[in-house]
C-alpha cells in the first residue's frame, strides 16, 4: 500500500524528482508506493495504478531514479 509523503523543498538543488509514470515534477507532496519491486514516487494513486496497468506491459520495468 502506498501513502502520501512529502519531500523537502530546497533552493540549493535545482533538479527535482518527477512522477515515475508521467514525468510531472513533484513540488512537495507525492504518492510513495512500492511498484515493480522498488519504492517509487507518483503524483497520485491513480498514476501508481497506470504504472502497473499501462506502463509495465508496454515498456517494461523502469530504472529507479
Amino acid at each position: 500500500m502506498g501513502e502520501w509523503r512529502e519531500t523537502e523543498i530546497s533552493y540549493l538543488k535545482a533538479n527535482r524528482a518527477a512522477c515515475e509514470l508521467c514525468g510531472h515534477p513533484i513540488a512537495r507532496r507525492y504518492w510513495g508506493a512500492e511498484a515493480d519491486g522498488a519504492e517509487r514516487m507518483f503524483c497520485s494513486p491513480d498514476h501508481e495504478r497506470l504504472y502497473n496497468d499501462y506502463w509495465l506491459p508496454r515498456y517494461g520495468r523502469k530504472a529507479v531514479t
Binding site: 535545482a14 527535482r16 508521467c22 506502463w55
Partner: peptide
Amino acid sequence: FTIIAPPGTIVNCSFP
C-alpha cells in the same frame, strides 16, 4: 486525462 512526458525530452525538459 493522463499525460506521459518523459523527463529530459523536448516535451518535458530538465533544468536548466
